[in-house]
Design a protein around this nucleic acid. Sequence first.
DNA 1: CTTATTAAGTCAAATGTATTGACTTAATAG
DNA 2: CTATTAAGTCAATACATTTGACTTAATAAG
Lengths: 401, 401
Amino acid sequence: MNDSRPIRAKSGTNHEGTSAHNRRVMIDALRINGALSRADLARATWLTKQTVSNIIVELEHDGLVGPQEAVRKGRGQPSTPYGLVPEGAFAIGLQIDRHVTRAVAVDLVGSVLVREEAGLPPGGPSTGTKVILDLVAGVRSKLAGVVRQSEKRLVGLGVAMPGPFGVDGSGDDPWMMAAWQQFPLLETLAAGTGLDVGLQNDAAAAATAERMVGAAHGLDHAVCLFVGYGIGAGLILNGELYGGANGNAGEIGMALLFADGKSTPLEHRASLASLYQHLSLDPADPALHARIDDLLSRNDRGIQAWIEAAAADLRWSIHLIETVFDPQTVILCGSAPEALVERLIAAIGPLLPSIAERRGRTLPRLQPGMADPWSVALGAAAGPISRAFDPRFAAILKDSL
Amino acid sequence: MNDSRPIRAKSGTNHEGTSAHNRRVMIDALRINGALSRADLARATWLTKQTVSNIIVELEHDGLVGPQEAVRKGRGQPSTPYGLVPEGAFAIGLQIDRHVTRAVAVDLVGSVLVREEAGLPPGGPSTGTKVILDLVAGVRSKLAGVVRQSEKRLVGLGVAMPGPFGVDGSGDDPWMMAAWQQFPLLETLAAGTGLDVGLQNDAAAAATAERMVGAAHGLDHAVCLFVGYGIGAGLILNGELYGGANGNAGEIGMALLFADGKSTPLEHRASLASLYQHLSLDPADPALHARIDDLLSRNDRGIQAWIEAAAADLRWSIHLIETVFDPQTVILCGSAPEALVERLIAAIGPLLPSIAERRGRTLPRLQPGMADPWSVALGAAAGPISRAFDPRFAAILKDSL
DNA sequence: CTTATTAAGTCAAATGTATTGACTTAATAG
DNA sequence: CTATTAAGTCAATACATTTGACTTAATAAG
């Protein structure tokens, strides 16, 4: 008689969900358009003037938005634009990479206020956890020194590290990131910091950053192709980061290419790891970026050869991304020297034909994104901000508390 | 002073949006789990018993759900399960293919009640429009003969045809589907039928069908690889069909493969069109499927060779889909003879390694889906049903009326 | 300079949904 | 036979948006 297979259903919603959504819509509108009057917000969101006024009062009370000077524009009472208050919220972003870990503190509009990095000793979580917790604590206290009350307005800690997560036999990475995969990182960090902790792979983090302050700002369908030690794609679909069933969507580094009868993961051909190997560079060298910049400026043959080979693979990856996702634009970014990304983009063009070729395009098919060692940490921090303030289906539902 | 670049913002929501969502959640829960008591619904949806009762009263009044016999299960008052009423809603689905057009009428639970097909004369829309409108009218009147009041409960007309839509230079298809692309089909059909009309490519339609009554039932992350005259992928992401920025997401037929230094669209190698060409079959032959079944049963060498070549490309496509989307499962379906799909699946296995290999998998990585000439028309009809009754973010918003 | 017009924004009452807590109904366990 | 458990209802309440009238403050027109 115990017929208890669990019942699967989506969550319902109620007034609080409605209100939460409308607040997020306001914040989103101000983020995309800059400061807006309440009348403009009402028109844009389909809500009534009264509702908008009520919500703005609340948001102002919460310190998230503030009025600017009244604007006269033609007849009628001047409007009072409201804009986001950068100090309205903060988040900590943490990047855990192979040899280094970086932490940043960002505010509501995505400005980086504090940044710190530390070398990550080999040995995995056993030795690394303390380094990381100290780094986060350091950034936090520095932030508290820069702005008062920052602790109260801290919405969470976002972590970015190379994926994929939870996959069998991902131990073929010679580096010991595998050890981190086993380790209960989120729980440890949550316990050690008292913050809400979220996890993304680094391509997803890069995409989150591009959406908040970069080339994907205001876009609902964009793919960030991220060239780092590995390679991955961060997916913005329907205005939200898409993670797939297990958070591993976009992990294209493991995609197998077939050429000359052999199969190779994309990662082995188009990633900084492959560049380092190609040029016999030491990934742990602190002057790595300077060294690469030097090679680029000297038009070194070795790096040029790598760029051309990688560009061919990237050209095809972009073609596939366009074909599969039909995005508004593709953004090429990376934790690589900016000059390298520029050279890659130059070498990639012209793009392969695809469904992205359509009349009335306004955005370029391929755009450069951030190429900055700190962009992943920024994206990691953007995660909690986005989760707390961007309109999302899940935020309406009762089971999101 | 005219600073009027348009303001971009997402729509807000209100009580009606809440209510609409909760109704959809109920219907969805009953679709996935079968009949449920109001108490079960309340627990599963996080709503209160009272709210669920109120909504069920409304849905029953609207003829969408109905009570079943009370069930005693242990102590306490017996529960009254409510289930979907199949006759609660209907939709017409229309498939426009190269040589043929098919129309079906389906009910709320996805049962096909009426089906009719007609040959599509060459000449494109100028001659085809009348054939199509007659076919739809025929199905509609047959439906009215089978169930009373069907017209009142008709939620729309869903159209499926080969994509992609609105792309430059899609005229390299020798067949004249291009002419259909230019034609204002939706407007013509809306005017000619008085129904709401929606459009999908045929892979998306197949995915919609699989989600309503097939292998993707109850799944929120699934990809349907659809082998038809062309090849495409229908994407179920976050429980909704994903169309991309322009409705062309998943149009992988145009994906270029590189082998032997040449590039070929996937469609030229793994699609029925390629099979027909390989075997010199006439795509317009009405006995095509029987002929293929015959070749299969005779283990014909030519078809065997095609199967092995196509399977290699499909194996790699599935690998790529798993890598990029991280779905719960991949479904292989098609408007091909069922035996052919079975043989393809057999020839595809074993799958390439990918991030889909993880501990705790419950679903197979690859599953067979519908292989039925009518599945696209069914999916076309499932479109309006899904749009009307499935929980979706857009359905909450004010700008969805 | 005066008046009409336009637009932003507020006020107070009304509306629509979900929630709350007490209550009723109806079964089984002991 | 009684206690217990669970489904479901009733009536009042809470919460967020909406409505329509009103106020404020500017420019345009005569």
